[in-house]
Design a protein around this nucleic acid. Sequence first.
DNA 1: CAACATAGTTTCATTATGCAACCACTGGAG
DNA 2: CTCCAGTGGTTGCATAATGAAACTATGTTG
Lengths: 154, 154
Amino acid sequence: MVKRTSFEGDSCPIARSLEALGDWWSLLIIREALFGIRRFGEFQSRLGMAKNILSARLRSLVDHGILETAPASDGSAYQEYLLTPKGRGTFPILVALRQWSEAFDDHPEEIATILVDRAKGRPVKKLEMRAEDGRLLSPADTTLKPRPARRRSA
Amino acid sequence: MVKRTSFEGDSCPIARSLEALGDWWSLLIIREALFGIRRFGEFQSRLGMAKNILSARLRSLVDHGILETAPASDGSAYQEYLLTPKGRGTFPILVALRQWSEAFDDHPEEIATILVDRAKGRPVKKLEMRAEDGRLLSPADTTLKPRPARRRSA
DNA sequence: CAACATAGTTTCATTATGCAACCACTGGAG
DNA sequence: CTCCAGTGGTTGCATAATGAAACTATGTTG
């Protein structure tokens, strides 16, 4: 097979997430959805992408349980695309990508927006990794362990 | 031109990060690099990807300042690929992707490894978004503001 | 120097992307 | 009901990216 390789059966959770999110458009569609965009035409005009690609991506995101189609909302008979909890769960990923750009982009002056705390209008703090007990962890403070076998329960 | 669209000039920091990281392999290469993989052949055998694609991706990552080539390390005359600070800065992105899979994957039993605090052997806490003053923020507690114009300084 | 390993590049078939054109359905005006 | 613009797609075709395998060029070992 010369198909584009799929990570569907991969045991690495990063590869598995890329299976659903790892193409050029999916995360941008989710970004728009988090902003409240719901309609096909809105996605299309805001992202400036071809309609067939958008159509394929929306279908893929629905298949992966990230979006769901709702029958209506503004009274019209059209449908719209809403984030599921799984879809809203990508928020930290988007924040991490955003903060990485803010920190390391070669031309940060071209970045138009900053993510701020709505209450104070101040930038949000950088994401940090902490242990269960709250200690701040660096990458070197972490390691991978095999997942414990599921305990047989029923 | 029917080229794949580039996000290079886009003002959205998420799009800008996807320009460098948003393909199927780049983040997996970085994942391996964070594990200490440095050599072409090691990447190739561990990821099982075609050598031409690996070659192109490594070049792209070097061009984006995420990897750099170092002349040697084990004495041999070959070169190796090392993460730059910018490359190591992607760690939160990978953690976010991993945690998203752990939380929402449809077949979590297929996930082989968990990320743990090395000192205690316990899973790391989920990434959380906080305000400057430490308040925990939900997506709804945040908003985007236009980046303040650079203050003319010299 | 012969033989083998490493690190790629080249070639070619297959797939995905992107644009434009086309089609189906909706909702409103007449 | 008919016409018609707007919405939400699908289809066709050209081009670009991907992937497997073969090939090349060094480096390394015996």
